[in-house]
């Protein structure tokens, strides 16, 4: 089969103990029989491991943080595109999605395709908007409120019973068993990710997840449910297994159909002992464990690239149940010259 040469730029090369999805997405794209990809890494830090994985990433460019403003990031992308002629760009961090979604037309004019949720889809699934989302789409969600003032912690017992889950706008979640713990987590998370802080009702049950891809027309291109088998102290899956769970898939299809979801997504769910599913979060991108879906028979990164390029993608109809992933850490030996190159010139 003739493989199409494409250039894909993506972020999330931080393959660390709290990994970004970049490397697993690249592995999916590289394992595709349809593409001969050139992979361009977009790195925010000098020590994102993916930058140094030359078997996976052809070239990496440092990019400014989204907090530096849309213009700075887009100008950098324009510079990179002039050199690399990017076909598809896949942002893999929640925190940069807003910038890229707002700039989708500018990117399109540059000849760069994306396949991202709309701003409306992105906004309405925000943690702080989850109760409204649950009501609108008739999905069970835990009660939650968004706090912008630490003093509001004093009044939490008006609406909640401890324990509660204290969450950051983009990342981080901790279970607080008392007001004192809630105060600590409020400070810890807000200093890192800003405000608001989300206080969410604690639902007792097992956390299960679904990785899925919507085509933006209400169709689910693929969906694979998973249960974390081993969770790190950062709450990340170190091991997981694919599940045969119709309820989880039905819920995923319903959400994608009702929201007309466009792009990758991860549903974070709690399954109670009564087998009820509560939606606790929608991450608007493919998750770091997406390679499990590839291993189970659904190459969602490949499908996402095809959709971005305007190609028809036939929805996946099955996947292998009982497929597992186990992460591992691995020490790469690199030369300081490479580190220097990236630090000084912003490319490697």
């Amino acid at each position: 089969m003739h493989k199409k040469q494409i250039t894909v730029a993506l972020s999330g090369l931080n393959n660390i103990d709290n990994p970004g999805p970049g490397i697993p997405v690249i592995r999916g794209i590289r394992e595709s029989n349809m593409f001969e990809p050139r992979i361009i890494g977009l790195a925010y830090e000098n020590l994102e491991p993916g930058t140094y994985m030359h078997n996976l990433v052809n070239k990496t460019y440092k990019v400014p943080y989204p907090s530096d403003g849309v213009d700075a990031l887009i100008e950098r992308i324009r510079y990179i595109n002039d050199i690399e002629k990017i076909d598809v760009l896949i942002p893999n961090f929640d925190s940069e999605l807003f910038t890229f979604m707002k700039s989708a037309d500018i990117l399109k004019k540059m000849g760069i395709a994306t396949f991202l949720p709309t701003l409306k889809q992105f906004e309405e699934r925000h943690k702080s908007n989850l109760p409204k989302f649950g009501k609108k789409y008739n999905v069970k969600v835990p009660f939650s409120i968004a706090l912008t003032n630490i003093n509001d912690i004093d009044n939490l017992t008006d609406d909640f019973e401890y324990p509660v889950v204290v969450k950051g706008k983009f990342y981080d979640a901790n279970i607080a068993y008392s007001k004192e713990q809630a105060l600590i987590y409020f400070n810890k998370i807000s200093s890192k990710w800003g405000l608001p802080i989300i206080i969410q009702e604690f639902i007792k049950g097992i956390e299960v997840n679904v990785v899925a891809l919507g085509d933006g027309k209400g169709n689910t291109i693929g969906a694979v449910p998973m249960r974390k088998q081993y969770i790190t102290d950062k709450g990340k899956a170190w091991s997981g297994i694919t599940l045969d769970n119709k309820n989880m898939l039905d819920l995923t299809h319903k959400i994608i159909t009702d929201t007309q979801w466009c792009g990758g997504m991860e549903l974070e769910l709690i399954k109670t002992s009564e087998n009820e599913l509560y939606l606790i979060e929608i991450n608007p991108r493919l998750p770091a464990w997406v390679y499990l879906a590839v291993g189970a028979g659904q190459n969602l990164p490949e499908a996402l690239v095809n959709l971005a390029m305007g190609k028809f993608v036939k929805p996946f109809s099955n996947y292998e149940v009982g497929k597992m992933f186990i992460r591992y850490s691995y020490d790469m030996i690199c030369n300081v010259d490479e580190f220097q190159e990236l630090s000084i010139n912003g490319t490697l």
Binding site: I206, V208, M226, R227, Q229, G240, I241, T242, L243, D244, N245, K271, V321, G322
Partner: peptide
Amino acid sequence: GFMFDPSTG
């Protein structure tokens, strides 16, 4: 004697 429940993992 290994049992696997695919609905829960």
